[in-house]
């Protein structure tokens, strides 16, 4: 381990550390540009590769290289998402480029504040009844679905969907209250 390592390795180490640190934020950002979330992994892979190819262009000019990298990578991510959407012609829900520009600007500004959101979502979920939690997660789970819950419980799927919509609104209210420091027990 004492042999001198070429600078490409050092560059690589730096890149991995910057990308690893910022990857959750990038992922959240790209997800927000893809309604429904399909294609997220593909876009993320393109983004990571593009960031590596263009890494020699990246200059950390501010106080904090992590923040500089994030700003730079968000731009890469935005364009990679746009080109992905251009190619995915038959996709139903595609934001127009000007809307994407607005979302990108707002997402970057909100990023620092959104770091605690996952913990808040988990806390809010934990405060809900098990049945509600299951219903909320069922739409994202490979092994579960609203139809299955309907079959098991004998409730009408329509009613469950209406309940799901209400639960999602409530959950988001809970998260916002919690983040705003107005934690209620509800």
């Amino acid at each position: 381990m004492s042999s001198p390592r070429p600078s490409r390795d050092r560059q690589y180490d730096l890149f991995v550390s910057l990308l690893t640190h910022n990857e959750p934020a990038l992922r959240r950002f790209v997800r927000s540009l893809l309604p429904g979330g399909e294609g997220l992994d593909d876009v993320m892979q393109n983004v990571a590769l593009e960031c590596w190819h263009k890494f020699s262009d990246f200059v950390a000019d501010g106080q904090d290289p992590q923040t500089d990298f994030r700003r730079w990578a968000f731009v890469v991510a935005r364009f990679k998402t746009l080109s992905y959407l251009r190619d995915a012609k038959r996709r139903r829900l595609v934001f127009d480029a000007d809307v994407i520009a607005r979302l990108a600007a707002a997402a970057e500004a909100a990023e620092d504040a959104s770091r605690d959101e996952r913990a808040a979502v988990e806390t809010c979920l934990a405060s809900m009844a098990e049945e509600s939690r299951r219903l909320l997660l069922s739409v994202h789970s490979a092994g579960d679905s609203v139809a299955r819950i309907a079959a098991e419980s004998g409730e009408k799927a329509r009613r469950l969907y209406a309940r799901l919509e209400r639960l999602r609104t409530d959950l988001l209210s809970c998260v916002e209250n919690r983040l705003a420091g107005r934690a209620s027990n509800g």
């Binding site: 927000s32 979302l103 959104s114 979502v121 994202h140 789970s141």
Partner: peptide, 16 residues
Amino acid sequence: YLRASRMTHVLEEIAA
């Protein structure tokens, strides 16, 4: 919208 999207993303992660 961004908050709703991030929350949905967290739910996807938890479910996965």
